[in-house]
Simulated scan of single mutants.
Amino acid sequence: MNIQSIPAIKGLLIDLDGTMYQGTRPVEGADQLIRFLKSSNIAYRFVTNNSSATPEDVAARLNGMGIPAEPQDVCTSGQAAAVYIAERQPGASVFVIGMKGLRQALLDSGLQLTDERPDYVVQGIDRQFTYDLLARAVRHIREGAPYILTNPDLLVPSTDGLVPGAGSISAMLRAASGTEPIVIGKPSSILMDYALKQIGLSAQDTWVVGDNLATDIAAGKASGCGTMLVLTGLTTRDNYDGYARAAGCEPDRIYETLDALTEEIAAMLELNKTV
């Protein structure tokens, strides 16, 4: 490994599914990585496209797998969507298609939830989605409400395998309204920029860690961060070339395991001590 080619790492933005865990199982080395970052005073955030869960929910899930986490360590697409709106129109009214995590994030940012004449339509994954919600959202968008999409994931993992995600619901809204949404989550840079503000670092000092070229790595590139692909989830050596072509981007570094990533960061820190 050529650690001299790695600029100083002050912070990491870390993906969750496929990077920290797979389903209900932690990825090997996930707990050691987080403990190492803590002991080395390297700032980090868990960055997830999942808008259905609150930061408290995410932290509880991680802790349940033995991965240390606090709610303030978590950045969700729901939080980023709420802040995006609140910065542009404080106290705006919002028609929401989404679950607890998204609704709570909107309220926490001082936004008002409404069914009639909203300033914005915000949509994430919604497991109670109905035709009536679709019809009302389309009407509001066609009447001029900007359409905000938490994340474009067409499929998401569940205990029953892959199921439709926020992007699948969005396909209906886009087709019926004739409007393209403002996308908040990966591969958009908006979620990453939100996380960078939370971590208090510049993109030049921060690296994105993830297992998905089309979301994690593409978002890191879009935000100007360094990118580290771990072959712990979606991407493997066997499928790498196809995914790289489809994503239109490649990572700055590739690691077989989280342990290898931890070892390289540790070596980089030791090298900096001697410079």
Rank of each mutant, 00 (worst) to 15 (best):
K186A: 05
I67P: 00
T274R: 12
L133G: 08
E263C: 05
S177C: 12
L213C: 07
A195R: 02
E250A: 15
G18I: 14
I42P: 01
I67N: 01
P152E: 11
L196Q: 13
D115S: 15
G101T: 02
A203Y: 05
A135H: 11
V209P: 02
A267D: 12
Y21R: 04
P181C: 06
F46Y: 14
L13S: 05
L33P: 03
D31R: 04
I169L: 15
K221A: 12
C249E: 08
R88S: 08
L271Y: 12
L213V: 12
L271N: 03
G185S: 09
V47I: 14
K10W: 01
L201Y: 07
A81G: 04
G248V: 15
S202M: 03
V94H: 01
E180V: 08
G161A: 13
I67T: 02
D211C: 13
Q198Y: 08
A8K: 13
Q72N: 14
F36Y: 13
C75D: 11
Q72C: 13
N49Y: 12
P7D: 09
S189I: 01
D119R: 07
A219C: 13
I182K: 02
L155R: 04
R35W: 10
A30E: 04
S39N: 13
A166I: 08
Q79P: 01
T227K: 09
Q32D: 15
L62S: 08
A171C: 09
N2K: 13
V96G: 06
S51N: 02
S77F: 07
M268V: 11
N272A: 11
S168V: 08
E263W: 03
R127W: 06
G144W: 04
L258D: 07
D17M: 08
Q112C: 14
V163L: 12
M192I: 15
A82S: 10
L113P: 08
D108G: 00
Q204N: 11
C75K: 04
T24F: 09
S40F: 00
Q123H: 06
A30R: 02
L37P: 01
D238W: 01
A92T: 10
E250C: 14
L234F: 10
S109N: 11
G161K: 10
K186G: 03
A247Q: 02
A80W: 00
Y44I: 12
A69G: 08
K197L: 07
V47L: 15
Q104E: 14
A260P: 03
A246M: 13
F36P: 00
P146L: 13
A137C: 08
M172P: 00
L162G: 01
K10C: 08
V83W: 06
Y21I: 06
G178R: 03
A8L: 13
A222V: 12
D160A: 15
E143Y: 11
I199W: 03
